[in-house]
């Protein structure tokens, strides 16, 4: 490909986010609490897989990248690799990530850089992902005592992963101007928009906005550098098993 190296590393970061979350959501197939949610989560996973295919194809062979890389070579955020947990954990992960992705893609779409065509396409889909997560957060948070408590535990548990997404991704806005010109990504502004949006949803859901750290020594987050959490290796082993055991298998 003719893309510059910095753009490739950015494509890898965004592509891995989409690929890994797509796989996690796919793990709900056959296990979701109701049929409609089974279908919804699979549809969201399919949207993400479509993004991943386009982004990884900017870097190299999509199958090679998905199935033959070692854990340390993946550049996804740690939040997307977290296990599904109960339905509340999956929804908290969806709320945190889809809000981030939607805000980021809206900026990339407006900026007119290398990622603008994909972002302009995907931002319309992430609007539905974010809406889905929001509606469920409201329903579970403002539901029964049991659903409220479980939703609160979930948003608390994943909070320490929510600082990482706002570390600038190298190459993402290379060659663009500043956000003030309607281009580029102002990461601090992105983060404050994210906080405002997520806090608003949590408050309307009668949930407490978690108080723990989002960055720093007690927070997690080095996925963009290839450092991942323990559950990721297990997920990857399952995801890559077939391709590694039967190279080139088709059906």
């Amino acid at each position: 490909m003719s893309t510059v190296p910095a753009t490739r590393s950015a494509a890898l970061a965004l592509g891995d986010d989409a690929l890994i979350l797509s796989h996690r959501l796919g793990q709900w197939a056959g296990h979701a609490p109701v049929l409609e949610e089974e279908v919804a989560l699979a549809n969201i996973a399919l949207d993400l897989l479509g993004q991943a295919r386009i982004l990884l194809s900017l870097v190299g062979d999509e199958d090679e990248l998905a199935y033959r890389r070692e854990e340390r070579a993946f550049r996804n955020l740690q939040v997307v690799e977290q296990p599904n947990g109960d339905f509340a954990h999956t929804l908290a992960r969806q709320l945190y990530f889809s809000t981030y992705q939607h805000l980021l893609y809206a900026r990339l779409a407006a900026g007119g850089g290398a990622f603008a065509p994909l972002a302009a396409k995907a931002v319309k889909e992430t609007a539905y992902h974010r809406d889905h997560a929001e509606q469920w957060t409201l329903r579970l948070g403002d539901g029964t005592t049991e659903s409220h408590d479980r939703m609160q535990r979930a948003v608390d548990a994943l909070w320490r992963f929510t600082g990482e997404p706002f570390q600038p991704v190298e190459g993402l806005d290379a060659g663009l101007g500043t956000e003030a010109d309607g281009q580029g990504v102002d990461w601090q502004q992105l983060e404050s928009d994210w906080l405002a949006s997520v806090s608003g949803v949590l408050e309307r859901a009668t949930l407490a906005v978690p108080q723990g750290p989002r960055t720093g020594a007690w927070a997690a987050g080095a996925g963009r550098q290839g450092l991942h959490t323990e559950p990721f290796g297990l997920m990857l082993a399952e995801m890559q098993h077939l391709h590694r055991s039967h190279p080139g298998a088709t059906w």
Binding site: E36, E37, V39, A40, N43, L46, D47, Y128, H132, Q135
Partner: peptide, 13 residues
């Protein structure tokens, strides 16, 4: 609305 996602990604139920 029953579900935001239906038989395909482009439809709601």
């Amino acid at each position: 609305l029953l579900s935001r996602f239906s038989s395909t990604a482009c439809k709601a139920l």
